[in-house]
Design a protein around this nucleic acid. Structure first.
Length: 281
DNA sequence: TCCTCCCTGTTC
DNA sequence: GAACAGGGAGGA
């Protein structure tokens, strides 16, 4: 389930492959894999990749005109991997797979062209070719919250208003960006906070502990190239290893690493939720 | 604010 | 052959 650390890892591993490469042809194999607000992918032809970065769970390729003519409006290509999306490069001869949704052919000037694949088994992921004006029309983008690794506790406290369950707030991308089910459960456990606590009931030290846990878990996962449950791979096809460090996610019924009591598994907001009733209040 | 749906492979 | 995995859109 690609969340912030996985998107960060894909962006980092993709960059050296495609920096300074120019988009040529593109083939969209499943219409619904293109965001409805997106420009046609053919409009990327002739654009050069100048940067690959991440915002929340989104992977963003910044593009600019490779020639001297035509418009200077910056464009970008965004990937949202959702659960099973994968972005990777392959040789010019690689055939489309069963779950390939889009193929871009790209090349560095005067070098052999190759391909940028977007595969997605469950087809929830989307690509979005955009100008800044188009992105502004996308409500999700407009309302995307701040990066959790760049905020302080007072900022988080301000954003955690209202009476919702804290886990629902953490996973709300307009509150903070990039947190999904795995890192919400893991950070709440580390901070000793019950996932159903109302956000407005959290005291200042608890918010500080929560942010510290969140940032610690995200940084640790990034340093281990993310978590691979089954589908996730980086741009080189490698798995991450943070799944070996999970303390609660996917461990319902197993003993708590802190107190030994069996971890409780419930559903919260339609999502599987695992926590320790002893350690999380 | 909460629920259902989208989608497909895996597990029970 | 049903349950489950789950981010976000859209509706109740």
């Amino acid at each position: 389930m690609p969340e912030l650390p996985e998107a960060e890892t894909v962006a980092r591993t993709l960059l050296p492959h495609i920096k300074d490469c120019v988009f040529q042809n593109a083939r969209l194999l499943r219409k619904s894999s293109l965001h409805p607000l997106s420009m046609p992918i053919s409009s990327l032809k002739g654009l050069k990749v100048v940067e690959v970065r991440r915002r929340g769970k989104l992977i963003i390729l910044d593009l600019e005109n490779s020639g001297s003519s035509s418009s200077r409006i910056p464009k970008s290509l965004l990937f949202h991997l959702r659960m099973t999306g994968r972005v990777f490069t392959a040789g010019a001869n690689r055939e489309q797979g069963k779950h390939t949704r889009c193929i871009f052919s790209i090349a560095k000037p005067d070098l052999t062209p190759f391909q940028l694949f977007f595969d997605d088994t469950r087809a929830f992921g989307q690509i979005f070719a955009a100008t800044p004006a188009l992105l502004d029309q996308w409500r999700f983008w407009r309302e995307l919250g701040p990066e959790p690794l760049e905020i302080d506790a007072s900022c988080l406290e301000q954003r955690l208003r209202g009476s919702r369950a804290i886990k629902a707030s953490l996973m709300d991308q307009s509150v903070i960006a990039g947190i999904g089910n795995i890192y919400a459960d893991e950070s709440l456990f580390q901070a000793g906070i019950h996932p159903e606590r109302e956000t407005c009931s959290l005291r200042e030290p608890e918010v500080e502990a929560l942010l510290a846990a969140l940032q610690g878990v995200l940084r640790a996962s990034i340093s281990q190239c993310g978590s691979s449950i089954r589908d996730y791979r980086d741009a080189n096809g490698n798995v991450g290893s943070f799944q070996n460090s999970f303390q609660v996610y996917g461990r319902g019924g197993e003993p708590c690493v802190k107190c030994g009591a069996p971890l409780k598994k419930t559903r919260l907001g339609g999502r599987a939720t695992v926590f320790c009733e002893n350690c999380q209040k």
